[in-house]
Design a protein around this nucleic acid. Structure first.
Lengths: 216, 216
DNA sequence: GCGAAATGTTGACAGTGTCAACACAAAAAG
DNA sequence: CTTTTTGTGTTGACACTGTCAACATTTCGC
């Protein structure tokens, strides 16, 4: 059967369900996302989703994936519009990341919550991995021009990702509807740029942090 | 009436419920936390919790708070055992943070999930804020010895916190039961130490990241 | 056209959070 | 010491949820 362009009973319901779910989440939060409500909003009955998804969990994963796709698109346009050099690219990426989190709060949360729950399956790269690859390539670019310290690119990218992600979460928890103030972003970018700069040579691993005093 | 030491009908049930909840979460995950189950585990009936908590949400907040208390204790002992200087203190803090997240996965997750949901009330500092204050004081110490760039201490602490938190989350998502490998921790600490070091002077805020190319 | 598969609907069930009504113990009031 | 009031735990009930089996309808392969 052809899946392309509105056909069959309802049309391509799967996509509609995902989009409807996203809308519900953004409007009333994840807690309000119920299969019944999705059905009503999509003009379809409660259990219709079970012909396209194995469970509610599965639907949430799909919603998460759709979120990541949007996220990656944002990332890509931001990359295209960013100033040429490495610092500009990294900065643009970071800003886009945090801004996305603040603009699409519920969506952002669901994205990572669902991604966390989905370990066993998921052989395909997935939109999330693709976005990460983008960051990795930026870092690699910096390494090639000598603006980033040499070493395991993936590890460095992980660190940078973690930093930006942590910032986003914190920002989400703190500022309610806040736009981003430039001073904050500047500081964040600087920490990154300096932190992974040439100066940060691996060097010998220092003595592991252990208890230096005796237990009483 | 006296609340101290096992008295009354059951003893001090409130504490028991929180601890039971923690156990259930650690054993079977957050999804398995049901008021009924807590009741059974605590030898009490399903709705007993409603004499001590307004709702399940409220109980979760209490569990989160208890988690933060444990977290802060870990932090404090780690501080006490850390080498004296600023780098050693910061490193110890970061390691303790990430290690806590990996050792108490479910607990850690619940801690921050519940903290996020609890905005309106919560006038008291809360264990989480206390832990943050500890980090802040470490940073301030670094600033006083000149090992950390001058500037808004709270902002810097936020950045550092976000970094460590992001790392923890990522580590949680990636490694299943993994212990921490020293190379990774070393890199993480270095990024922090160098990133917030003297070199990172605030300087003039650069032109905000904007679209540099025209739209086609 | 026809059987088979895909897709959507209804009824039902176990499990959940929550509340009102009740039962009892402990403290307070007399 | 008795009575009253408050704190604490239990039971019954309700609306709501995710999920499945059984049924209805549409589309596809032949």
């Amino acid at each position: 059967m052809t899946r392309s362009r509105a056909a069959y009973h309802h049309g391509n319901l799967r996509e509609v369900l995902v989009q409807t779910g996203l809308k519900v989440i953004e409007k009333h939060g994840v807690a309000a996302l119920t299969l019944r409500e999705i059905g009503v909003q999509a003009g379809v009955s409660r259990t219709a989703a079970y012909r396209h998804f194995a469970s509610k969990e599965d639907l949430l994963c799909a919603i998460s994936e759709a979120g990541f796709a949007l996220f990656r698109r944002d990332m890509e346009t931001s990359m295209a519009e960013a100033p040429a050099g490495f610092p500009g690219r990294l900065r643009a990426m970071a800003v886009t990341y945090v801004r996305f989190a603040l603009r699409h709060r519920a969506r952002f949360t669901v994205m990572f919550d669902a991604a966390r729950a989905r370990e066993p399956e998921c052989e395909t790269p997935g939109e999330g991995e693709l976005a990460f690859a983008q960051l990795e390539s930026v870092i690699r670019g910096g390494q090639e021009t000598g603006e980033v310290c040499a070493g395991d690119t993936k590890l460095l990218a992980e660190l940078v990702w973690a930093h930006i992600h942590g910032i986003s979460i914190l920002r989400l928890a703190v500022s309610q509807s806040g736009e981003l103030d430039e001073a904050f972003l500047h500081r964040m970018s600087n920490l990154l740029l300096v932190g992974i700069g040439r100066a940060n040579v691996p060097g010998p691993v220092p003595a592991p942090v252990q208890r230096k005093r005796k237990k009483p």
